[in-house]
C-alpha cells in the first residue's frame, strides 16, 4: 500500500471517529438542545466525507466502507435518557466541557489529516483529491470552531456557578 492510500485510509478512520463522537456528544447532552441538533448536523458533514473518501479510495485500490459507521441505536437511546434524567442538575455541564474538548481535539486531528492529503494531492497533481480536500476541509474547520465557540460560551456558567 502506498503512502497516499495510507493517508486516505487514516482520514476515513478519523472522520468516522469524529462523526461518532459528535453523535455521542449529541446524545449525551440531549437536554442541551442546540448541542444536540448542531452536533448531529455537523456529524453529517463527517459522514459525507467518509462516503467521498471511500469513493476516491477506489482510485488508490482501497476498499473502504462507504457507509459511515454510525452509533448503536440502543446505546444512543440510553445516552439520551441519561441526559434527560440528569437534566435538572448542573454538574453534567462539566461533562459537556469535556466532550467539547474531545471533539475539538479530534477535529484538529482530522484537519491536519486533510492538510496532509491536500499537500500530497498537490505534489502528485491529483486534481480530484485536491478538489475533495478543498470541499471537505473547510467543514472540518467549522466543526473545530464550533467546539471552540460552544466551549467559550458555556465555560463561565459551568465553572463559576455550582
Amino acid at each position: 500500500m502506498n503512502k497516499v492510500s495510507l493517508a486516505i485510509r487514516e482520514l476515513h478512520r478519523s472522520e468516522n471517529d469524529l462523526a461518532t463522537e459528535l453523535l455521542r456528544t449529541a446524545d449525551r447532552h440531549k437536554v442541551d438542545h442546540e448541542i444536540f441538533h448542531v452536533a448531529r448536523d455537523i456529524a453529517g458533514w463527517s459522514q459525507q466525507h467518509v462516503r467521498e473518501l471511500a469513493r476516491v479510495g477506489h482510485d488508490y485500490d482501497l476498499d473502504l466502507d462507504d457507509e459511515p459507521q454510525g452509533v448503536h441505536e440502543v446505546l444512543a437511546e440510553v445516552r439520551r435518557k441519561g441526559s434527560e434524567m440528569l437534566g435538572r442538575r448542573h454538574a453534567p455541564s462539566v461533562l459537556l466541557l469535556r466532550d467539547l474538548r474531545t471533539v475539538h481535539r479530534m477535529a484538529a486531528g482530522v484537519s491536519l489529516d486533510w492538510e496532509i492529503l491536500a499537500q500530497t494531492a498537490q505534489a502528485l497533481s491529483d486534481r480530484e483529491l485536491l478538489a475533495l480536500s478543498e470541499r471537505c476541509h473547510p467543514q472540518t474547520l467549522r466543526q473545530l470552531r464550533w467546539a471552540n465557540a460552544k466551549l467559550k460560551e458555556i465555560a463561565a456558567q459551568t465553572v463559576v456557578t455550582d
Binding site: 435538572r88 448542573h90 463561565a156 456557578t161
Partner: peptide
C-alpha cells in the same frame, strides 16, 4: 463580555439545570 449575552432559550436551560 466574555461571550455574547445569554439568549433566552439558553437562560431557560440554566434555570432548568439550577444554575
Amino acid at each position: 463580555h466574555y461571550t455574547a449575552p445569554t439568549h433566552l432559550m439558553q437562560m431557560m436551560r440554566y434555570v432548568e439545570d439550577g444554575s
